[in-house]
Design a protein around this nucleic acid. Sequence first.
DNA 1: CTGTTAGCGCCTTCAG
DNA 2: CTGAAGGCGCTAACAG
Lengths: 332, 332
Amino acid sequence: MKAQVRLKDVAEAAATSTKTASRVINGDPRVAEETRARILAAVRDLGYRPDPTARSLRKGTDDTLGIVVDSIADPFFAAVTGTIERLAIARGLRVMIASTGRDPRIEATVVDDLLARRVAGLIVAPTASDHSYLAHAPCPVLFVDRRPDGLDGETVLVDDNDGARRAVAHLAARGHRRVGYVGGKMDVATTRNRLQGYRDEVAASGLQADESLVRIGRNTADEGRAATLELLALPEPPTAIFSSNTRCSLGVVAALHACERTDVALVCFGDFPLADVLAPGVTVIDHDPLAIGQLAAETMFERLAGAPATGRDLTLPLRLIPRGSGEQPVPT
Amino acid sequence: MKAQVRLKDVAEAAATSTKTASRVINGDPRVAEETRARILAAVRDLGYRPDPTARSLRKGTDDTLGIVVDSIADPFFAAVTGTIERLAIARGLRVMIASTGRDPRIEATVVDDLLARRVAGLIVAPTASDHSYLAHAPCPVLFVDRRPDGLDGETVLVDDNDGARRAVAHLAARGHRRVGYVGGKMDVATTRNRLQGYRDEVAASGLQADESLVRIGRNTADEGRAATLELLALPEPPTAIFSSNTRCSLGVVAALHACERTDVALVCFGDFPLADVLAPGVTVIDHDPLAIGQLAAETMFERLAGAPATGRDLTLPLRLIPRGSGEQPVPT
DNA sequence: CTGTTAGCGCCTTCAG
DNA sequence: CTGAAGGCGCTAACAG
């Protein structure tokens, strides 16, 4: 491998000092035009590329954005992360992505590492645990999808409670009185808020508040499928189901189709591919991951540019998309 | 923010030199037990964490793996990347992920940047362009999904040609003579190989080789949908379709269902959620992204440990999963 | 077994 | 407008 071209080499080739070369590289205007031209020529000739590591060590900061999510393989987070990355690159920023697997200890480790690498900013989907240690982070911190515990962090999210309420209200309006709930583990705020919204609307609409209709702790399609079968096997099964996340939804849909019970009404939190192709189409509460990613990225860019954090939630709107499954009537 | 704890602080607290403290941190055995204990105590007391940037600058290498893929939002690459990341973290390695958007210039930029950051190893899904510049990379390089141009790089992939052939042969065995092809742009080797496999098998099975049946350059679900409608509108439409990638497949499936033409047989390259739930279920050639990620990660770990690259392809097996759509008979 | 010296490549003083 | 010296935090050489 050929030796690395250093700033010093550029300076020598241009018959000047490293500092002046550095000024040109960093766009400092106080350099004579002629000198600048000579240095730029040398940069081109030698193929000089600044060493980000050395720069980072010296400046104490890096042009990298840290992103911490549950799992990069989760389609929701993949879409959010992909959007942020695209916009970051367009602004000349790099991106480091790390997954937590929803483990607070792993989260602490990867966040520590990212901070040690002097990231310019940090975007985190927080797991359940105390995040007060991020109150004095040396860089802007922005949360996505969930509010952090123990800290008034600025957060980009949707109104999970309201979304769940609207889903249940939609079913209630079609006459359903027994609505099942399938959702994830309660260690995640998103899940808690959606379940709360379900319970709020069950109470508000005067639906049957039967705890045997509530199946939580289901984080995979297989668990969602199993939960659905359990609900259908109840002595008094629900006539409608609200699925609280996409992983579950894929299992719920699979179970209903496998049992040929698509007469059971269904509303899912989160859109997914082919939801509109199934028969009946799946009615969803859509929370657009691209919009979330875009708002997160733009907010972070503002913080990096010096705009102070509001500390308030940035709430994105939800859309209910009726496609058929949520409009199934109560069997007579 | 409180000042960073440096190695020097640890050394002073332990009444020794930075070099000895460094030895302890790095597990060098040639340190007296007593000194080691004193230093470890100081590390704990002060909460010392080594600075990866400084270490990287000095050592000329980093414990970070670079991953470069088309798009982190693509489910296939999300799954591959997620698997690699999980395994890397388990081995104490960090991961930097970058997307190219299939643009060779962006690829060159992000690869350059990753190399400038002294990544320990690089895993790349190459875009169309000359990759010979990676022949002398200062770290192990491994390719995934596609073979690089202009370079005998070690590559983890599946046999795209064979998979396409098997898909077409499967349809031919059911009596189909006119099989449509829907696929992506030809700038990607994967696509070229799948189209070649299609053509090879069309010839081998004596099917009708009609170029109007071939729709390439379709990289999104919408484009896949449009291509399907075009095929169905032909004076002599195909009785079966082979879809060459998942993005297309989602559009093809949507179009067939929207037109109520699920009598048209369909085999898709790449499995996707709900493929087994649709009616009929979608027959696919499955290339397991988790297995690809795992093999890539493990191969990279071997290279990092010093095992020389074989320079040969690491080919993973493909499975044809019949679910109904690929077994539709020719209408009589 | 331990410590001193000298950088890695860059940028920030502070003088010219 | 330009340059020389010093140091970011760490570790490889090379002594002791």
